[in-house]
Design a protein around this nucleic acid. Structure first.
Lengths: 192, 192
DNA sequence: CTAGATAGTAGACCGCAGTCTATAAACTTA
DNA sequence: TAAGTTTATAGACTGCGGTCTACTATCTAG
């Protein structure tokens, strides 16, 4: 499954991808997406620029993979805890997502920016970042409806859009994305 | 007020700004933000590139001004109509905003993208595009509370974030931003 | 061992946003 | 008129993302 056919030809350097991703993550976190050049990443990883383009077609693709290598990881822990109310589970989930954003929010904003002029990359970002979180939130809201914590009259898909939209809006407008926002969102979604 | 001091020196070409903005709007709508170069705009406007940079410091600044020259214009008509419910007023307002987006949504997405790596421009975009619409929506929701159409327990600032976040989220993720979305948002905000 | 295929490297190349310089043009003040 | 100031223009320049080419290295199939 992870083995490509490779019927002849020089094999890819086994370590290159890992060292490129490591250099990318390090440099992007230190200096920011736009202040890191592909040349600097290749140099730090000890490879030629073309080696990098053999594996990722754009800078955005590379940074996406470097930043989200461990994902789901940031999008599944605190769900489905039957001891807490769904409202508190939502708040905990958002706090977890926002904690991740504290570390990676800046490159993620740059990735959202890059997606605006590259439909293929927008789809990749959607698969990697957007959809997994939508699924978790929608599932949580449906459980809340099943347990009577949320009215059946509410449109869970639109509520999910409200939730994600609210933090995207804050993120992209440079407003704080923190525990307070998580609490305010959860309170307003589960308003009596 | 509109007169600068101008104590000596060659005066600015009075027509240059207008023709640059006209060329910008035309080319950006025809080809898209990233496929139009500053050189092409300057050439179409019949000026040197530097003349353009004498008036706007970045491409994003120029496009912002070209796209929003007539604003408020897109952010004030249907509000405050006492014959319609606040819910319908919100829906009408959103339809109007989304109609504008049908024409200018692509450059606006590019402007939001450009704002992610330029704090000064993010502030400019906020003043020109974000805040005016927030003010209108918050005002409408407060009127709804005054008239009893919306519960006093709701947090109008967060509801405004939900509303704007929902269409930013749809816009930036390439989902349709249309009359249906306007109706679904209004319905969910004013859910019984 | 040979032929073919694929990968790595170095470096040229393109188009772009944005900066800078030199020169000419158009104004104000003395 | 002369000096000083600001603008317009043309064009060189930098750094970037991304492409392309020429050459070398390493694999598989026969």
């Amino acid at each position: 499954m992870s083995e490509e056919k490779h019927s002849g030809g020089r094999p890819r350097d086994a370590d290159a991808a890992a060292s490129i991703k490591a250099a990318t993550l390090k440099l992007v976190r230190e200096r920011g997406y736009n202040k890191v050049s592909i040349a600097a990443i290749a140099s730090a990883a000890g490879v030629a620029r073309q080696t990098l383009y053999n594996r990722w077609s754009t800078k955005a693709d590379l940074v996406l993979e470097a930043v989200f290598e461990e994902t789901g990881h940031y999008a599944d822990a605190p769900l489905h805890n039957p001891n807490k109310s769904c409202k508190l589970q939502l708040e905990a989930f958002l706090i977890q997502v926002f904690t991740h954003l504290k570390e990676s929010g800046s490159p993620i904003r740059s990735l959202i920016a890059a997606a605006q002029d590259d439909p293929a990359f927008r789809e990749a970002l959607r698969e990697r970042f957007v959809k997994p979180r939508e699924v978790l939130v929608i599932d949580l809201l449906q459980r809340a409806q099943d347990q009577g914590e949320l009215s059946r009259t509410r449109d869970v898909k639109m509520l999910s859009n409200f939730i994600h939209g609210a933090f995207w809006y804050a993120l992209l407008n440079g407003e704080p994305v923190d525990a307070r926002l998580a609490r305010d969102i959860a309170n307003e979604i589960f308003v009596a």
